[in-house]
Simulated assay, not measured.
Amino acid sequence: MHLSKKERKRTKSTLDAEPDRISWLPGHVTDQIMSYLPIRDAVRTSVLSRNWRKKWYTLPNLVLDRQCVSAEASQDPLVIEPKFSKMVDHVLLLHSGPINMFKFCNYDLPGEGSLVSDVDRWILYLIGRSIKELVLEVWIEEEYYQIPWCLFSCQSLHNLKLRWCWLKPPMVFESFRNLKSLDLNLVTVDQDAFENMISKCPLLEKMKLTEVDGLTQINIHAPNLKFFEIEGLFEGITFDNTFQLATIVIDSWFDLTSESNPSRSPGCSSNLLKFFDHRPHIQSLEIGSYFLKYLAAGVLPVKLPTPCIDLSFLSLSVNFDNMAEILTALCLLRS
């Protein structure tokens, strides 16, 4: 079929007038699409159309990890580290909106060079952008990354997750006044510095400690704490002013032979009683066999003086070759 010149012109005008559906998607739809894309793919959407060219500039959540690097580059240790650092610099330089969450992880990327100065610089930049959630998993060969002091002045932080880091707050550390969640995994921190830091997080609601080095006796002072999870080797644990604590998960090894452990004294009060003292709102409790052995130390009651009326979930790992653990479990069940 042959079209006349007039018909061809009319057809072309009709095609030109059809809406570009990708360009004119509603803002909340494009935001949703972008939120599911790795940053590397989000940047690639800039070629879709003029309206998409700068969409990724305002991504509120930035995740910088292996997915940001091409498969070819990630196999070359001489290429990956400078390429990765430049890519992070490029993203932060062009970003124009608020940054709510920033995650950096270089664990599964080859390379032996040091990223310390780069990460320090990024943290300082993010503080200026009022970052709310910071996740750092910085793998440096044979050492931990030391968190710079500038981070301890960041009052906008709501969530902080660190892995393979060394925490050393400055002597003049005042507080993380807005921090609600703290997750430390394979982190080194001094006992006194940790306790001082926790006591200066008035809004802290959730805490997770995994293999934290430098802590022996865990002393928690957090009036708004609602969730607490711990895993590692310690001598004991106490809670002070944690009346809101509702969920406790403990899968730890406790050194009952330590000279500093008060439960070694004959006739001393049970660790079980001390643990449940002032825990009126506990709703969920999950403890491993090693911690049950810790709770069994001392003089065990038949049941707790104050029943756990809100406890709706209880998970116990019991060594049935250990009578003390059995009696401790029975005491809990009666309560």
Results as ranks from 00 to 15, higher is better:
169 P>I: 07
228 F>K: 00
82 P>N: 04
22 I>R: 04
228 F>S: 02
157 L>P: 00
123 I>T: 07
292 L>M: 12
97 G>Q: 01
55 K>T: 09
119 V>C: 10
310 D>Y: 14
267 G>F: 11
172 V>A: 11
143 E>K: 14
214 G>Y: 00
244 Q>H: 10
160 L>Y: 02
108 D>M: 07
147 I>V: 15
5 K>N: 09
20 D>W: 07
226 K>F: 08
274 K>T: 13
282 I>G: 02
44 R>N: 05
175 S>G: 11
273 L>G: 02
129 R>Q: 15
289 S>I: 06
232 G>Y: 04
194 F>I: 10
157 L>G: 00
18 E>G: 08
148 P>S: 08
238 T>V: 13
171 M>K: 14
39 I>P: 00
290 Y>S: 12
21 R>D: 08
179 L>K: 00
280 P>S: 12
254 F>A: 00
323 M>R: 07
202 P>M: 05
318 V>W: 00
231 E>V: 07
316 L>C: 06
178 N>D: 09
235 E>S: 11
86 K>T: 13
331 C>M: 02
10 R>H: 13
250 I>Q: 02
119 V>M: 11
288 G>W: 00
101 M>Q: 12
39 I>L: 09
255 D>K: 04
165 C>F: 05
174 E>K: 14
306 T>W: 05
255 D>A: 08
145 Y>V: 04
177 R>T: 14
269 S>I: 12
310 D>M: 13
10 R>S: 13
85 S>W: 01
193 A>L: 13
327 L>R: 09
82 P>L: 02
24 W>A: 08
298 G>V: 06
41 D>Y: 10
77 P>T: 08
313 F>V: 09
11 T>Q: 14
126 L>S: 08
98 P>M: 04
327 L>A: 10
56 W>I: 05
119 V>Q: 04
60 P>E: 06
240 D>K: 15
203 L>C: 04
307 P>Q: 12
138 V>F: 04
165 C>I: 12
31 D>Y: 03
275 F>D: 04
6 K>M: 11
5 K>H: 14
64 L>N: 03
116 V>Y: 05
219 N>S: 10
219 N>Y: 02
229 E>F: 02
214 G>S: 07
14 T>D: 11
311 L>P: 00
90 H>L: 08
182 L>D: 01
